[in-house]
Design a protein around this nucleic acid. Structure first.
Length: 230
DNA sequence: AAACCATTCAACCGCCGAACG
DNA sequence: ACGTTCGGCGGTTGAATGGTT
């Protein structure tokens, strides 16, 4: 016997009325507890739909409009480095969401990147989980990353990047200019413990970063949350 | 003006990892 | 240890819009 559907939730485009209801609900109760938002707001929408609508459209932190040239430049460079890690990239673009960046890339930049042969789908370094060993010695001397395109994963940060203080776009671009790629899949740059170095250090897991001091790939090591770490 | 095609982007879907009981 | 729930992610879809013929 066919089970009765619990409750049909609305799908598709949000109406101004729904936006208003959701906005008032978030203003009253705050973000989080998304499973309760439809109930509290009286919206016939699923929790995911409410969350997505707020984070990608209604949140006052969101910057809308065209991407500035420095933002575009940063997207291209970070995408070359990180691949399709949209939220990670967006975390360095104040006011932009992962969805924004993803859409912009797919509609404006991807074809150009493919034409230039820099499409990160095949060439990007794919950072592993954003956790680090507490006994890792960071930010001293030259750092080398062994690029292994086979070690891809769909990891999730334990804290939102938005909880960090994003570096300025020009700071990151400056850092990028100091980076150099070496043949045979090894990436190097000089570290002096600056914010830029901390940024890039935060993007790799320990087993992909060899500082020359210690490689902590042992799963038994004590891990710290790198977003808090920053 | 109409038909067609291309582009944009909001929204949905399926999956994953963390947290919790 | 296991199952369930939840938050969050990237991939994908499709309606709306704009451009071209």
């Amino acid at each position: 016997m066919k089970r009765k559907t619990p409750l049909e939730v609305r799908k598709g485009a949000w109406t101004p009325e729904e936006d208003s209801i959701l906005r008032k609900c978030i203003e009253k109760y705050g973000e989080g507890n998304w499973h309760q938002v439809p109930l509290k707001a009286g919206l016939n929408r699923c929790r995911k739909s409410c969350r997505l609508r707020w984070l990608n459209y209604l949140s006052p932190d969101i910057k809308r409009g065209v991407f500035a040239s420095d933002e575009v430049e940063l997207i291209i460079k970070l995408h070359k480095l990180l691949g399709n890690r949209w939220t990670l990239i967006a975390g360095r673009l104040p006011g932009r969401t992962g969805n924004d960046v993803k859409n912009y890339w797919n509609s404006h930049l991807r074809i150009k990147a493919v034409a230039r042969g820099t499409d990160a789908v095949t060439k990007a370094i794919k950072p592993r989980p954003r956790r680090f060993a507490s006994n890792q010695v960071w930010f001293n001397g030259n750092t080398t990353i062994n690029v292994d395109n086979n070690t891809q994963s769909r990891d999730t940060p334990t804290n939102k990047p938005s909880t960090t203080s994003p570096l300025k776009v020009d700071e990151i671009l400056c850092w990028w200019d100091n980076m150099e790629f070496i043949d045979n899949g090894v990436l190097t740059w000089s570290m002096d413990g600056s914010d830029e170095d901390q940024l890039i250090a935060s993007l790799w897991s320990t087993d992909e970063v060899a500082t020359g001091v210690n490689i902590a790939s042992d799963s038994s090591v004590d891990h710290v949350d790198n977003w808090n770490f920053l």
